[in-house]
Design a protein around this nucleic acid. Sequence first.
DNA 1: GTCTATACTCTGATAGAC
DNA 2: GTCTATCAGAGTATAGAC
Lengths: 204, 204
Amino acid sequence: MVHQSAPPVRKSGDQDHILANAARLFRRKGFEKVSLKEIAEACDMLPGSLYYRYHTKEALLVALMRRGVEVVTEEVEGAFASSNDPAEQLRLCINAHLRALVTDSDTVYVLLFEWRALRPEAREEIVALRDQYESFWTDIIETMIKQGVIQKNIDGRLLRLIGLGALNWVATWFDPNGEYALDAVGDLVWRVIMDGVIDNRLRA
Amino acid sequence: MVHQSAPPVRKSGDQDHILANAARLFRRKGFEKVSLKEIAEACDMLPGSLYYRYHTKEALLVALMRRGVEVVTEEVEGAFASSNDPAEQLRLCINAHLRALVTDSDTVYVLLFEWRALRPEAREEIVALRDQYESFWTDIIETMIKQGVIQKNIDGRLLRLIGLGALNWVATWFDPNGEYALDAVGDLVWRVIMDGVIDNRLRA
DNA sequence: GTCTATACTCTGATAGAC
DNA sequence: GTCTATCAGAGTATAGAC
C-alpha cells in the first residue's frame, strides 16, 4: 500500500497543468476527499478561477479520465507496434499498461479506480471509452488464438478480464522504490499467462 | 462494471444489522459518498442513534473491515481444510476468496477497496490484519514450492500479489447474472497459475 | 481569465430529553 | 438505547468586479 506520484506541477495556466495536479490529488486521496479549493491551491489559483475551466467537479474528472484513456492507449499501441512476434507483443503491451498505470501518469490510475464517482450519464461515456481500449486487448488475444499460440478452448474475453485485473491491482501495492522492478512484475504475469494457456503442441 | 449486492437488511437492533447495511451502501457508492443519515435510514434509525454504537464514521468502517477479514479468513480456511491435495487446495481457496469477495458479503469488498478512507492510525491496524490474511496465501504457495509442485525459481510473494490481484479485480466487473459462473472464473485463474508455474518435471 | 465575496447545502457530530 | 434539535464547519457553486 505504498503510493508514489509525480511531483506537483506548477507551470501555470494551461489545462494539462490543472488535470495533472487534480490527478495527483485524486490518486492519493480519492476523488471525494479532494476539494476544489485544494486543487486550485496546487495550481496557484483560487476556486473561482477553476470554475472558469470546469463548471463542475465531475466535468474535471471526466476530462481527466478521457486523457487517461488516451495515455494508456498511446503507450500500449506504441508497444504493440515495436515487435512482430505475437508473444513478444503481448509481453511488451503488458509492461506498457503497467507503466502507464503505475509510473507514467496519475490519470490512468484515476480512470480505473474512481469511476464510482461518476453519475450514470458520465459513467456511460467513460465506460464506453474504456471498453474501446480493452477491445484492443481482445484483438491481441483473439489473434493469438487464431494463430494457435493460445489454446482454442480458452475464453479470450475471460482471459483478458483476468489478465488486466492482475495488472490493474498492481497499482495498489507497487512501490517504485521497492524490491521489484516494474518489468519483473509484468514479465511474471506474461510468463504465467503464456505457460498457462499456450498450445501444448508448441511446448518443448 | 455491474454490481450486485445482498438486499437491504432490516431486522433491527444488533450491530451486524448496522454493519451489513453500511457495507452494502459503501460498496455501491463508496465510503465518502454515503452519509450517516443514509445509513441510519437503511437501519430504520436516526443519525443520533447510530452515534451511540459508533462514535465516528471511521470507527464504523474499521469495525466493518475487521469483520471483512474474519469473513474471508473463515471462508478460505474452511476451503483449505476440505482437501489434502495441494493443487486442489489452491483451487478451492481461490474460489473461496472469490465467493467471499463477490457474493457472500459486502464487507470483504469494502475491506479491499476503501482502505484509502482510513486515517493513518486505523489504516495501520487494518493493513496488519490484511497482511495476516495474505500470509495464509504465502504459506500455501511456499508449501507448494517446497513440495516441488511449483517451480523453485518462482518468487512466491510476487506470485501471491499477482494472483490475489487477479481475483480482487473480479469484484469490479463480475455480474452474478452474467455469462460466467464464479467458479469458472476461479478455475481459469487456477489453471493459468498452475500451468504457468508448475514444475516442468511433473508435466505430462 | 482570474480574483473577491458569498450563498446555499449537506455533513459529521453533540447535548440532553425520554 | 433511541429520539429531537441543533451546531460548527466544509463543500460546491455563483455573481460580479477587475
